[in-house]
Amino acid sequence: MSSNIDRRKDSGFNEYKAYKSFNIKEQIKKERRSDNLEKLIEVQQQKKVYYITLGLCLSLNIILLSLGFIGLGGN
């Protein structure tokens, strides 16, 4: 007999998979469980911050390296 507690535990939410997933928007639309929905929104926000920071950091590195190559060409 499946109890309420078992059903609650068996929510199928996997944080690791959620972070690796590329279609989190779709998952948010489909999710009906409020606790899982909160976790998915949290994952989405964390990923957004990660990508923005990575983008900025990568851009700065590319700009600096480009300046180095320009200097190398100039010499």
């Binding site: 972070y19 690796k20 950091c57």
Partner: peptide
């Protein structure tokens, strides 16, 4: 030093990959 810190940040962020604590750290 600026360039060193920047490339250090890039390699650590890439190594860390997507995951928790990004928002909290910033």
């Amino acid at each position: 030093s600026c360039v060193a810190f920047n490339s250090c940040a890039l390699v650590l962020i890439l190594n860390g990959g997507r995951g928790s604590l990004a928002k909290e750290t910033m």
